[in-house]
Structures are given as structure tokens and as C-alpha cells.
Design a protein around this nucleic acid. Structure first.
Length: 414
RNA sequence: CGGGGUGUGGCCUAAUGGUUAAGGCGCGUGGUUUGGGACCACGAGAUUGCCGGUUCGAAUCCGGCCACCCCGACCA
């Protein structure tokens, strides 16, 4: 993509109404725009990152047999009254149609998917089934926090699985837990599986926590067993498995998994006929990943004084190609030619490249802005190329450029 | 929801109660530049969050409201 065509704008000054590093950087670099407290627009660069994350999730969930669908975000009041959560769910956004019908804006989708699944399941032969979506959620938070980490509107992946019994749920949950670690890993994050409270659902849930000083959760972590307990459920500081002293960490919760048991199946009367011809309640699990929050968490973990440093798999582009012009018009023609040729070549090789081809922008501005945006690989074509016939190449976090030829370049980028 | 703080062009800031609200960034035009946010000239852009009050005079003082930020409570 040509940089002059990208709808973005970078800023030199920090926004005055943000303190969270993730929000400051994402706004300064042109990935998001703030509309109001806890409400952000995703600009093209930001959306690219979100889509990268979403596709990693899709790939990994589809591999374990989950199916994607899309559920409505307008939830009629009756559905939420059935579970008692119209009153109890404290961050529920409520709204009304012109005819007086009441709805909530979706903060989660159990109330919608259980009635749906009721229509899909009648026999044990229909089980198990695992359905997920990646969609917007609304929560009327009393206090929004930490940039993209806690918003009123955000994107979430929510997966729901339905089974014949509790053992099957537990078995599937273990598979999901494993896949979650892989998803976060691909996003560049070493998430820690953490025992946490299950809220009103179950005795406990599993949270996926990413260590960073910016985190709002506190966990006790055992480096020996690579497992942790959320502070809210753990009083002692010794590992239950190996008795080692636990380490206290500040973390961001990027995902969680629950065994729902039959709680919602009872509320919506979701049953199946088992082999023995008896009618039984369906057992279920639910599993969430905060996609927008994940983007924020990645930025919290990967940045320096110059800007963002995107992990490769979630970066908006893989390569930032920058051409730097000189006084000499003849030389410029050469630089331009080489740059556009490389740009075409990379496109042909399906290597995602952002090409800063702009002519009346100073080298300093291009390079500083490039570091702010944080694309993993940088190629600079200017005077050096004319001298050495090699590209100046560097990773975002390298201090110095390396001079390499086209073959070496393609080998690294493929 | 409790406590604290802040609201000034698109962004960041300045301005003892006293002319026509100042500067930087960004933007437009022209020119000079080009390996780490270049320079010069000219120009456009503001009911100082909103409503009311005090005053000869309010961005500035007072009251109410709204918005945003931070701490706390909350976070299936």
C-alpha cells in the first residue's frame, strides 16, 4: 500500500486526555481515534491489526472444529429476564424502540445463543457443537480505564460449546485452554493460565493473564509450574502443586474460559435425547477473548520511547519501505525506480508492504513516523543504495541498519 | 456511584479581572531543502465546554449543568 493513500494522521504531542501508554501510542500513530470515554474508532491501520488478530483466532478455533456465526447485538428484554440478568447484570446497556419494546445492547451472548442452540439440538447425535463469533460488545462501565483495556464498546470473540455431560465440557475446555495459549503466543504474548473465580457460573474459571506493569489484575505466579492464581481467590503465597513461593505479578486479562454446567440450559430448557432415550440437560462452556483489549495489551508490552513495536503476526504490514530523496534529480529518478520496483516485487511475493513514497516529506519525518507506527521490518532506499547497490534493512528494534541484497531480503521476509 | 483534577482553533500549550485571546504543531500557497519530526514568506482557522450571575469590563471571579482524566468501589 502506498502511504500517501492511507487514511491516517500521526501526532507529535501526547493527547491531553489519555494516560495509558497503549492509548497514547495508538492515537499518536494513527491507529485509533477517541470519540468519547471508552469509545474509540478504529482507523485503517488499527483495523488491519484487529483483523490480523481475528484471523489468528479463526484459524486456531476452526482447527478444533468450532464454527463461526454472527449473533444479533439487540437483545429483547424477555431473553434477559429469563435468566434474571435484566436486573442483575449491572453493566447492561438498555434501550427502547419507538413502539416501546425494550432491548439490551449485547454485553455477552448466552441469552441469545442458548435459545438458538435449543433449535439445533434434539439428539445426542447433535452433540458436541461449538459456535463462536467475533463481534462488538457493549458494557455500561461505571468507570472506563486504561485506554483500550476497559471500554464501553469493544470487540470480543465469544465461543460457546455444548456437550452431553460435564466430563465432555471439561475435556473440551482443556483443548480450548491450550489453543488460547497458542493464539496469544502467535500474537506475541506469553499468557499465563490462571485460576480465578467463576463468578456466579462455576467454582472457578480460567483466566489468561499477560504480565505488564500496566495491568489492572494481580496474580500469584509459580514460574516452576507455569501456572497462577488470581489474587482474588488466593490468600496464601505458596504454589499448591510444588509448594514454591509465588511471585506477584500485575497482569492484563486477555481471555477467560468457563464451564457453565447446566445453568443456562435450565433457564432456556435446552435438552437432548440421549442414547438411553431419556431427555437430559445440555452441558455448556463459554470462552472469551477480548480482541480490542488484546491489541491494547500488545502495545503495552511492545513499545519503546519511539513508538510501537508490533509482533510480526499482528503488525498492520510486514515491511515498511521508505524512499529518501536527494537534491539531485537524476539520482532521485533512480531511487524512485528502484523503490517502486522493490514495492512491486514484494507485492508479487505477497509480502505486505507499506511504501512511504511521499516526495515532499523529509527523511527525518518519514523515519520517526515509521518508528512510531512500528512495522516490524524497515527498508530504506536512498543515497546508500546508489553507493552500495544494497538495501538498508533493519528490524524495528535494531539500532543499526544492515546492508543486504534482494535475494537476502526475500529470504528473510518469506 | 464516592473522592480529586482538568476543560482555550483539528492537536499541544500561553495569557494579574483591562484593547482586536498569544505561540508551537498541523493545514493551504510560493520558494529553498532532503539519512532521524528542515527553513523562509504569506495565508486560512476561536462564540475560551454550556447556561446563568457578579462587574464599567470575564478565558480569568461565583453558581448550576455537561464532558474528559486519575484514585476508590464495581468488573458474568
Amino acid at each position: 500500500m502506498l502511504q500517501s493513500k492511507v487514511a491516517y494522521k500521526t501526532y507529535k504531542e501526547n493527547p491531553s486526555d489519555e494516560e495509558a501508554r497503549n492509548a497514547i501510542l495508538l492515537i499518536k500513530a494513527g491507529f485509533v481515534e477517541k470519540v468519547s470515554s471508552g469509545i474509540y474508532n478504529l482507523l485503517p491501520l488499527g483495523l488491519r491489526v484487529i483483523q490480523k488478530i481475528e484471523n489468528i483466532i479463526r484459524e486456531e478455533l476452526n482447527k478444533i472444529g468450532c464454527q463461526e456465526l454472527l449473533l444479533t447485538n439487540l437483545h429483547p428484554k424477555e431473553y434477559w429476564e429469563k435468566t434474571g440478568r435484566w436486573q442483575k447484570f449491572d453493566v447492561l446497556f438498555k434501550t427502547q424502540s419507538q413502539t416501546g419494546s425494550e432491548y439490551s445492547l449485547a454485553p455477552t451472548h448466552e441469552e441469545i445463543i442458548f435459545p438458538l442452540v435449543k433449535k439445533l439440538i434434539s439428539s445426542y447425535k447433535d452433540l458436541p457443537i461449538a459456535l463462536y463469533q467475533i463481534h462488538t460488545k457493549y458494557r455500561d462501565e461505571l468507570r472506563v480505564k486504561s485506554g483500550l483495556l476497559r471500554n464501553r464498546e469493544f470487540i470480543m470473540k465469544d465461543l460457546y460449546s455444548f456437550h452431553r455431560n460435564n466430563e465432555e465440557v471439561e475435556k473440551f475446555k482443556k483443548i480450548v485452554d491450550k489453543v488460547y495459549l497458542k493464539i496469544f503466543k502467535r500474537c506475541g504474548l506469553d499468557a499465563i493460565e490462571t485460576y480465578a473465580s467463576g463468578g456466579t457460573f462455576s467454582p472457578f474459571s480460567t483466566e489468561f493473564q499477560v504480565p505488564t506493569p500496566a495491568g489492572e489484575d494481580t496474580i500469584y505466579y509459580c514460574s516452576n509450574c507455569r501456572i497462577a492464581w488470581n489474587k482474588e481467590i488466593m490468600k496464601e503465597r505458596k504454589c499448591k502443586q510444588c509448594k514454591k513461593e509465588l511471585q506477584e505479578l500485575k497482569t492484563i486479562e486477555v481471555g477467560n474460559t468457563f464451564n457453565l454446567g447446566t445453568k443456562f440450559s435450565e433457564a432456556f430448557d435446552v435438552r437432548y435425547i440421549d442414547k438411553d432415550n431419556k431427555e437430559k440437560l445440555v452441558y455448556a462452556g463459554c470462552y472469551g477473548i477480548g480482541v480490542t483489549r488484546l491489541m491494547g495489551a500488545i502495545v503495552e508490552v511492545y513499545n519503546d520511547e519511539k513508538g510501537i513495536i508490533w509482533p510480526e503476526e499482528v503488525a498492520p504490514f510486514k515491511v515498511h519501505l521508505i524512499s529518501i530523496y536527494l537534491k539531485d534529480e537524476k539520482k532521485n529518478q533512480k531511487i524512485k525506480k528502484i523503490s517502486y520496483e522493490l514495492y512491486e516485487k514484494l507485492n508479487k511475493e505477497n509480502i505486505e508492504v507499506l511504501f512511504d513514497e511521499r516526495e515532499n516529506v523529509s527523511p527525518g519525518e518519514k523515519l520517526v513516523e515509521s518508528d512510531l507506527i512500528g512495522i516490524p521490518y524497515k527498508i530504506v532506499i536512498g543515497e546508500n543504495y546508489l553507493k552500495y547497490k544494497k538495501f538498508d534493512f533493519k528490524k524495528r528494534n535494531w539500532k543499526y541498519y544492515k546492508q543486504i541484497n534482494l535475494a537476502q531480503l526475500l529470504k528473510i521476509l518469506k
